[in-house]
Simulated assay, not measured.
Amino acid sequence: MKTGILGIHGFTGGPYEIQPFVDYLKVHTNWEIVVPTLPGHGETLELKNLTAESWMMTAEQSLRQLQKEVDRVIIVGFSMGGIIAMYLANRYPIYKLVLLSAAAKYIYPAQLLQDIKDIAKEAVVGRLEENSLYKQYSYKVKGTPIPATLEFMRLVRIVQPYYGQITVPVYIVQGKKDGIVPYATAQFIYDEIGSLKKEIVYSESGKHHICYSEDCEDWYNSALKFLKEEEEEETTSN
């Protein structure tokens, strides 16, 4: 059985958001891995006049192409990509899902405020431009038209009624210090999704970009074990 991974990045992001996990999978498996860049995303943001459907369609086209090349597909979705992953799992025969900081709910004011306070401290000592968090927020705020943000929110609303129809095994990872998605979102997805086989892993130190968390190696290992369980059983039975 040939396994493929479809990775889907987040809103205003790019494949780099899940690259560390992709690199880990490349080292530890021989799976085919595809991570498309959604329209308007990547290193340069060009989000004007794009819709939720354009992002969903690109991911869907990548999935259909991958399905022609492998026997089964695992989808790894980060943030908005997690919502698109659930949309696809409801429409296509998917083997398993990995949802990373999935944006079923978004903007956690308390942590966002703390992040901004950290930026302010850097500004006082003259290191503001060096602060990666500042650069991240500053660029995304400047490069994100309001209509695009509304399309992201609309996408979340489109998919939410169908969580209960998703039955594939799902592995959920959420950082407790996420400044974009409140960490309680993971439990919300766990409760709503129809899958019988499902796990949640919390990163105590993890922020939104969970693939860059200090403890990411821990959940990388357990995620891979979750994804390979049946594969190992098949090898043993043969």
Rank of each mutant, 00 (worst) to 15 (best):
E129C: 01
S132I: 13
Q61D: 12
Y137N: 01
R64M: 12
A102L: 05
D71L: 03
L100D: 01
K96N: 09
M57R: 11
W55S: 08
D115R: 07
K140S: 05
N90S: 13
G82M: 02
Y92L: 05
Y108A: 11
Y137S: 02
Q114T: 11
Y134G: 00
L50T: 11
Y87C: 09
L99N: 07
V124W: 10
L50A: 06
R72D: 12
A120E: 14
A110D: 15
L47F: 05
L100A: 03
W55T: 04
Y108H: 14
K96D: 05
S138L: 08
V98R: 05
I116W: 13
L88G: 03
E53K: 12
E46M: 13
L100F: 02
A52E: 13
S101D: 08
K117G: 08
A103P: 01
S132H: 13
S101H: 04
L63P: 00
S132Q: 13
P109F: 13
L128T: 06
S138P: 02
I94A: 03
K121R: 14
L112S: 07
R72A: 11
L100T: 04
R127K: 15
R91I: 14
Q114I: 10
Y87R: 12
K140L: 04
M56H: 02
L66G: 03
L128M: 09
Q111H: 08
P93K: 04
A103I: 01
L47R: 05
L100H: 03
Q136Y: 15
Y108W: 13
L133Y: 15
A85S: 10
Q114H: 14
R127N: 14
A59D: 09
V141A: 13
A89K: 06
M86Q: 12
F78G: 03
K68L: 13
M57I: 09
K140G: 02
I75A: 00
K121Y: 12
L99F: 03
Y106T: 08
K117A: 09
R127A: 12
E130A: 07
A52N: 08
R127W: 07
L133P: 00
A52R: 10
V73S: 03
P109C: 03
K117W: 14
E53L: 08
Q67V: 05
I75K: 00
V70W: 00
A59H: 03
Y87Q: 12
P109M: 06
P93W: 02
G126M: 09
Y92G: 01
K105D: 13
Y137V: 00
W55A: 05
V98W: 02
E53Y: 07
D118M: 11
S54Q: 15
A102F: 05
A89R: 07
L100Y: 02
L112Q: 11
L88Q: 05
D115Y: 14
I75D: 03
I83T: 10
K121I: 14
A123I: 10
L47I: 07
L97S: 01
V73K: 01
T51R: 07
D71W: 00
L97M: 09
V125P: 03
M56G: 04
M86R: 10
R64Y: 06
M57Q: 13
I74L: 08
L88D: 06
K48A: 15
M56Y: 06
R91W: 07
V73Q: 04
F78H: 12
L99Y: 02
K48P: 04
L99A: 07
Q67L: 12
L50M: 06
D118E: 15
P93F: 00
M86N: 11
V98Q: 00
I83V: 15
A123P: 07
V125K: 10
D115F: 08
Q111L: 09
D118H: 13
Y139C: 01
E69K: 15
L47G: 06
